[in-house]
Nucleic acid binder design. Structure first.
Lengths: 327, 327
DNA sequence: TCATAATGTGTAACCGGTTCCACATGACTA
DNA sequence: TAGTCATGTGGAACCGGTTACACATTATGA
């Protein structure tokens, strides 16, 4: 593999000139440029990005830290990040943290040794101060981290209110809120939205904590439904748990939406695959990922950010788990 | 950030000794080792992996090329690859090729400039000869690439036979085979298994090509079902298309499994989320990814491979889309 | 007791880029 | 006509590691 010195020799110029030519930095005469271009073609020269990184202390890698790529929310996100990264010449490194702060720190640590250019982080497991003394650009996605960090998130609270009202308007009197894990930003916000929607009404409510896993949601909901047969509505904090709830309802021979109405959150592709399809509060997951990626790359390249905190709007999508008409 | 020369100075030894100590290569005296260790602690020294890569021409990055991480099969795979990579000190770079040969070549090209250590490739879009003159280690996953490349795949044909027989044993007389895209290795093999199972029987069959996308499967199956009401069984080449088929059946008010039995392939997590749950031929996706990752890392590190072609066994998992009893 | 081997260490070249600085040339301005 | 500026170029240091080689010291065995 040819290196820059070979090219310089072939073109009859110095390495400095070749480097300037490659980076379009500084002055390079037309004749030199032509000779260099020829030499590059002839030698099929490709600059070593590793060597470049060594002197610039910069790579074009960005790290994407997710709790678990296996959770249906994250592949769509990862896809968006990768697409955008590609167009800007970056490549993305995938990290599953399992929500484990140590794993997360381990990644941040070792990837910094590789001069990674920045991180998109979708976990709340670390406190803000962990990030503060990092010199490396970070944007937080879907998890609010207080402080100056750029952040993109959804209108979780607003969405939860809309979703809960949707249930109320369709006649639900006894509603379970299947809230996500405590301390996880969006889960807390969605719960807050639910509570706001429900206060000052006569709706009976029950709040149950439940991880974002299908089988645990199914189990928990089945138990709750058996415990209280009057339940006629479930607001789930994610589509996966909504799907679990739906499965539980079917197991108990409840008709959805006649006996029980369910609404999810996320609009993950799963939500159209169940029967009936899940009514859900749709997040524009792809857009979230794309916006985050662009923000990160701008930060890396020292371009100004118009906004440091972006909220992506949310939208109710009605499918089959809620009644088509208001009551 | 301290570098190796700082450490050498602090410890009162040469950089060569520090380097030897770090890599546990060559001789280092106990006293020197102790002093170096102290210096490292004191300066909080972390070697620059980029500098190391420049001289060794090796990184600890591995590239994972998938058609689309959004397809439910791949997150599980990616998770496995990442888990194994992590334990061996590698990090994984995610690439979505969309089955597009140019995109795939682009990745291989640019990542080689970054001295990436190897690739796991899950696409068949490139012919074997594209890979032959690559010096970089590659293992092919789930897509057979002829030639000497190490490969891990599933018992696709065997699985398809088992699945088809399962349908036949349960009384299906008119079966659709929802085959995957032509030219995609596993899809072809599964079709072959279906055909083998069905020949020399009196079963009526129809073979329909269908991408691995939910909505197109749903549409195609709905049309087929309307066109031929006698159809009582569907062998789908993936769980996603099986889920599409199930949705179509529900839309036509067919009872599954009484009127129509469906079997999928993959045992993606989606398959337990539908109602009824999908009977499916389970691949051990995680294991496939893990095995592939280990094979790749061994190849990278010049360790011997016991086997170059690994087939992971497959297993029928019965859920609700087929009858519980044979007829 | 001496040749030889095993152990321990340092110097300096090398990996392949970037960039500071010095210098040369020609054009323009005061 | 001298001074200034824009343009063009090359030498060499630098990024932070690895490693070939030379050399010193100590242990081993005949």
């Amino acid at each position: 593999m040819a290196n820059i010195r070979d090219v310089a020799k072939e073109a009859g110029v110095s390495v400095a000139t070749v480097s300037r030519y490659l980076n379009k930095k500084g002055y390079v005469g037309q004749k030199s440029a032509a000779k260099i271009e020829q030499a590059i073609q002839k030698l099929n020269y490709k600059p070593s990005l590793v060597a470049r990184s060594l002197s610039t202390k910069q790579t074009h890698y960005i790290g994407l830290i997710v709790p678990d790529i296996t959770n249906p929310f994250f592949p769509e996100l990862a896809r968006a990040v990768e697409d955008i990264a590609l167009t800007y010449g970056y490549t993305v490194v995938l990290c599953n943290s399992d929500g484990n702060p140590e794993k997360e720190l381990h990644y941040i640590d070792t990837l910094q040794q590789k001069y990674i250019a920045g991180f998109i982080i979708t976990t709340s497991s670390l406190d803000a101060h962990h990030y503060e003394n990092l010199t490396i650009p970070i944007v937080a996605l879907d998890r609010k981290i207080e402080g100056p960090l750029p952040t993109v998130s959804s209108q979780n609270k607003e969405g939860a209110k809309v979703g809960t009202n949707h249930l109320i308007e369709r006649g639900c009197k006894n509603v379970i809120c299947l809230r996500g894990p405590k301390g996880v930003g969006p889960a807390d916000e969605r719960l807050a939205g639910f509570i706001e929607a429900v206060q000052d009404t006569s709706i009976q409510t029950e709040i149950i904590e439940c991880s974002f896993q299908f089988d645990v949601a199914e189990r928990i909901v089945k138990k709750a439904l058996l415990g209280n047969p009057k339940i006629d509505g479930i607001f789930a904090s994610s589509d996966v748990s909504a799907a679990g709830a739906l499965k539980a309802a079917h197991a108990l021979d409840l008709h959805v939406p006649n006996d029980l109405q369910i609404i999810g959150f996320d609009n993950v592709s799963l939500s159209e695959m169940t029967t009936p399809g899940l009514t859900t509060i749709a997040q524009d997951i792809y857009k979230m990922g794309a916006v985050a990626a662009r923000m990160l790359i701008k930060t890396i390249e020292n371009l100004p950010l118009e906004e440091k905190k972006v909220q992506i709007p949310v939208e109710l999508i009605q499918r089959g788990t809620t009644r088509s008409e208001k009551i």
